[in-house]
């Protein structure tokens, strides 16, 4: 029998299948989830498929990254539409936050920008300059202005990503050690930008599904 754990994101769904000792990780487009799976053992994120248990995303994040949290790292999950972090101190929960109102400075905006300018993630390079993107919508305006004045789109989007990394750092209350969960681990420009402010450890996309497995253990 295979136990299925699902972290349903806005754009991508991460899946962990456990059969005996064997673990298989998969990432699929969230739009395909219902075609491929009808139910699961545990789920988190934005899903309506049948599950034996639903686990809060921040709880799944904390459970999935527990060994890093116990080393006093802040664990930050930056997704398509929201950003959340958890921090422990002396092995116990200390603080957290979760943006809840505006998704204009998260992954979906970067994906839209890449599509809009016909770019790939690999085209982005760390730039020392950054846009101040307290509001991502204002950030878009700056990109468009600069591109219309001759700046390469890849550089402008990189400056946006640097701004996004800086926002993430501020959002974590300027944590010294930040573990990153989610697809941004694979975004070199983001990771290099964040390293200007903190020690950064990439944890990959599957922290929350690992957290579902660990939860209540």
């Amino acid at each position: 029998m295979t136990d299925i754990y699902i972290d349903a994101g806005t754009t991508w769904t991460k899946i962990l299948e456990v059969k005996g000792d064997k673990k298989t990780y998969k990432t699929i487009k969230s739009g395909k989830l219902k075609d491929l799976y009808s139910d699961c053992k545990k789920a988190t994120g934005h899903t309506s498929i049948k599950t034996e248990k639903y686990v809060n995303e921040a709880v799944a994040l904390a459970m999935g990254a527990k060994k890093y949290l116990e080393k006093d790292c802040t664990v930050l999950d930056l997704g398509s539409r929201d950003i959340k972090w958890v921090k422990y101190q002396n092995g116990k929960f200390k603080d957290m936050d979760w943006n809840t109102a505006c998704a204009s400075a998260t992954g979906a905006t970067v994906e839209m920008l890449l599509k809009f300018y016909g770019l790939k993630t690999e085209d982005l390079e760390f730039t020392k300059e950054k846009y101040t993107i307290t509001c991502g919508i204002f950030g878009l305006e700056k990109i468009m202005d600069d591109v219309s004045h001759g700046l390469k789109a890849s550089v402008a989007v990189s400056k946006f990503v640097h701004g996004l990394a800086y926002n993430a750092y501020i959002f974590t209350k300027k944590s010294e050690n930040i573990c990153i969960s989610g697809g941004f681990c694979e975004n070199r420009c983001f990771m290099e930008s964040l390293k200007q402010y903190a020690n950064v450890i990439p944890l990959g996309r599957y922290v929350l599904v690992d957290g579902l497995l660990n939860e209540n253990q």
């Binding site: 809060n56 921040a58 709880v59 959340k84 958890v86 929960f93 957290m96 936050d97 809840t100």
Partner: peptide
Amino acid sequence: AKIEAFLKLR
């Protein structure tokens, strides 16, 4: 969810 997480993790 943020409130629920705070209550659960604390």
